[in-house]
Structure formats: structure tokens, C-alpha cells
Amino acid sequence: MEPTAGSGDPADAAGATASVVTLHVNGVARTLAVDHRTTLLDALRERLSVTGPKKGCDHGQCGACTVLVDGRRMLACLLPAVAWDGARVLTAEGLSEGGRLHPVQAAFVARDALQCGYCTPGQVCSAVGVLSEAAEGHPSLATPAGPARTGGGLPPPVRLTPEEIRERMSGNLCRCGAYAQIVAAVGDVAP
């Protein structure tokens, strides 16, 4: 029915409206034909039954769909699945392997950094992204001006003060207002 690009290579499907892609979701290669309109979020939720990423606004305004794509936090609701063929996608489900919580997840539980839970998987993925961004020396608007790098070395890590965490986590709305607990949880895991 659907005009699907047949080769499994979505690189040229100008005339087709669907393509076959492979997404490495939580360590498992998943190959599927996607409508070009399908976002990574809908591919995960509706096609692959990975419902940890939530649809809170579907327009990049709430952060509930935050996942880690090739190691960086992004909003799955704005990524066309076809464009991310071959990507490694990590969701809250994949952060905890074999029943063991990721340290961020454990901190969220210990700090009670959740209420209704709908923003929580996105908060958790966002926090994991924040930790690596800070470790790589990525600044935020809360980062004091200073030497970004002296000489040719790597930038120094950014220390995650509560102010840094608040600014960096501000793309993840929590209408229940668990912010204080979330900031504390991320702070617990920060080096």
C-alpha cells in the first residue's frame, strides 16, 4: 500500500513516502518501515512499544520526550525518524539494565523527584545528558565567564551547582512542581 523506499536505504526516497530504517533502541537494532512524517517519538511509542518517552506537547516545548540520541539529549517529538536511520537511541527503559537503576534514576527515587511521573523519564534522560555535557565542559547561561580552554587541551568540566542544574534542566517542565527534588537528585549524582 504505502510507497516505501524498497532498498532499505532511505537516502533517496523522493517519490516514496515511507522508508525502512534501523534504530538501535536501548542496545537492540530495530528495523522498521516508517512513514516519513513519523517522528522518532511516535516510532518509539506507537511502533516499538517504547513508551518511556512521553508526548507532553509534541512541539518541543515541554521536554517529556527527551531521549539520548547518539549520546546527546534531544526531543524525540521533533526528530523525523527517517532522518535518524542508524542512530543509537537510549530511553529511560534502557538506562536501567537488568533491574538495576541508573544512578540518576536511583537519585530520583531517593529524593522523591517525581509526582505524576509523566515528565519523569524525560527528566531522567535530560539529567543524564546534562551530566555528560557538563563533564565535556559545555557551558550554560549560568556558567560564569572564564577560560573555556587554555592552549589546546580539552575544556575543563563545569561544576554543576544548583543554579547550573536549574538552568540546564529548564527544558523539562514539571507541572507537579518537583523541581527542588529534581535539582537535588541531579546534584547527588554530579561529581
Partner: peptide, 9 residues
């Protein structure tokens, strides 16, 4: 601008 997630994309 925007959020950390959006700036990554």
C-alpha cells in the same frame, strides 16, 4: 535560546 535538548539538535 530554547533548551539544552533543542540546542543539541
Amino acid at each position: 535560546g530554547a533548551s539544552g535538548q533543542l540546542r543539541n539538535a
